[in-house]
């Protein structure tokens, strides 16, 4: 498990540049993920890795291709100081876990081993032994994630058919 750490305002244009949006296939998007900010990312990322961002992660375009690309790379979750709101809801809607926790962002560095508990919101830097508490999701949002995404949650409620 590796940690990839980036700064503030990681925008969706660098997460997945617009020149690749003409092919929305998830694996194709994943193969170009982070290309304009970290050309080595797509070639080295492995399932279970964690992405750390600063403030306003995922700002810019509403393209759902961005969280989809990161998710398809096998990234376990994104931890950031804050998320741009469309990225935030897109991640929730596709059932991809994200955690807002400024202290964890400051306390985790590339090379650290990190474990996360989505139920409790506890993030543990196993390298340093430090633990951090992310704000838990509201029950409504947890419901979406537990159903694997918004459409499944709506179907389970019987409002989409």
């Amino acid at each position: 498990m590796k940690v990839y750490k980036y700064g503030d305002n990681v925008d969706t244009d660098v997460i997945i540049p617009a020149r690749y949006l003409n092919n929305p296939d998830a694996k194709s998007l994943a193969s170009h993920c982070m290309e304009d900010i970290d050309a080595n990312f797509a070639g080295s990322v492995e399932p279970g890795d964690i992405v750390i961002g600063g403030a306003n992660f995922g700002c810019g375009s509403s393209r759902e291709h961005a969280p989809l690309a990161i998710k398809t790379c096998g990234v376990k979750c994104v931890i950031a100081k804050s998320f741009a709101r469309i990225f935030y809801r897109n991640a929730i809607n596709i059932g991809f876990p994200i955690m807002e926790c400024p202290a964890a962002v400051d306390g985790i560095h590339p090379g650290d081993t990190v474990s996360v508990d989505f139920q409790t919101g506890v993030i543990c830097n196993e390298t340093t032994g430090e633990t951090f508490q992310a704000a838990p999701f509201p029950a409504f949002v947890n419901g979406i994630i537990e159903h694997g995404g918004l459409l499944n949650a709506l179907k389970a409620r019987g409002v989409a058919c």
């Binding site: 509403s62 393209r63 759902e64 469309i86 809801r89 897109n90 809607n93 596709i94 409504f140 995404g149 918004l150 459409l151 709506l154 409002v159 989409a160 058919c161």
Partner: peptide
């Protein structure tokens, strides 16, 4: 919003 919100909106006329 994103595409899943659009899909849900088209189907239900609702958004959270």
């Amino acid at each position: 919003v994103g595409s899943t919100d659009m899909a849900a909106g088209m189907a239900t006329g609702l958004a959270w």
